[in-house]
């Protein structure tokens, strides 16, 4: 919250500075700004209403997850919980135990972290080689990576699952290798785009100082690529954490379930779904994501912009 306020004041200060810089236009600007101010207030009000509708679906899930199962029907779903229908955290306890949510959360977390770390490490190294060495291998790798970004997952889903089975890459502990393979395209593409624009002189100087390529990569190149590393890590995290089909096909669903698999399994396997625990599970699934977003908002939004500009 503090951050947002800071930004607003920064903006207003900027406004003032701009206004001071143009004294000749002051009169005209003053009249215009009065009009604009009114229009802007109306826009703020309209957008405020839209924003309320925007968060409503999440709000509705939260209030219903606090109600007793019997109190949720199509007519009452929009009501706030009352003293009689309030269920406290019972639904959460029920949902968490029934879904074995904690182990799913653990698997999801482990898979996401291991995959993203592996993708960042291997792909940045690969991208550096591609951007600094002019060989057939670099060219082939680069174009294959671009190509792989266009291919829909359905094209490889069956054969990929079979390959993973054969190579025993079908547990949460080594599925990151599959993710590295399928996620390499975007990461290599983004890193190469940045590294090609990096001045080569720094690296040449390091070379003269006697750095080996490996030392140079970790001590010189990695620090410079930090912004791209963050952007790529965010895009890959959003993908791996929410991915449903790949882990469903590769992992053994009876032994290991990630969070998206858990939600789908929970919903699909019961005749009549118990709505309240289901909503409680949805809430505990999205709360960590939203918290993370509120804390790292700046990086996430910058990551999206950077990814788009290069994509």
């Amino acid at each position: 919250m503090e951050k947002i306020d800071e930004n607003i004041t920064e903006d207003t200060i900027e406004d003032v500075v701009i206004a001071l810089q143009k004294p000749s236009l002051e009169q005209k600007a003053l009249k215009k700004s009065k009009n604009t101010a009114m229009v802007n207030n109306i826009i703020t009000a309209v957008l405020g209403i839209v924003a309320l509708f925007y968060v409503y679906p999440i709000f509705m899930i939260i209030i219903n997850s606090l109600k007793q199962e019997s109190a949720i029907s199509t007519n009452t779903a929009f009501n706030l919980p009352t003293a009689a229908t309030f269920a406290g955290l019972a639904n959460y306890v029920h949902g968490v135990t029934q879904m074995d949510f904690l182990s799913s959360f653990g698997y999801s977390l482990f898979i996401t972290i291991s995959s993203v770390v592996l993708i960042i490490l291997c792909c940045s190294m690969c991208a550096w080689y591609i951007s600094r060495v002019d060989s057939v291998l670099s060219k082939v790798m680069y174009y294959l990576c671009i190509f792989s970004m266009v291919v829909p997952f359905q094209m490889v889903m069956f054969t990929l699952a079979k390959t993973a089975d054969t190579l025993k890459l079908n547990t949460p502990f080594n599925i990151c290798i599959i993710y590295l393979g399928f996620g390499a395209g975007l990461a290599v593409f983004m890193f190469t785009g940045f590294m090609k624009s990096m001045p080569i002189e720094v690296e040449e100087a390091a070379m003269i100082d006697g750095y080996s390529p490996l030392q140079m990569f970790f001590k010189v190149v990695m620090p410079i690529t930090k912004p791209t590393t963050i952007s790529t890590a965010i895009l890959e995290t959003m993908w791996v954490w929410n991915d449903y089909l790949l882990p469903t096909l590769v992992l053994d669903i009876k032994k290991y379930r990630t969070i998206p698999m858990d939600i789908q399994y929970f919903r699909g396997s019961y005749g009549s779904v118990q709505m309240a625990p289901m909503m409680a599970c949805i809430v505990i699934t999205i709360i960590p994501v939203i918290l993370l977003y509120l804390f790292c908002q700046k990086y996430i939004i910058e990551g999206v912009v950077a990814g788009a500009v290069k994509g």
């Binding site: 190294m125 690969c126 591609i130 600094r132 054969t159 890459l169 290798i177 599959i178 390499a184 040449e204």
Partner: peptide, 26 residues
Amino acid sequence: MEKSVRRYWPIFVLPTLIAFTIGFLW
């Protein structure tokens, strides 16, 4: 510089290439 980096390809490119072959190409 290019030459010395080129010699390091098994470290820089090979891990990604192997995973890429398993996870996509093949």
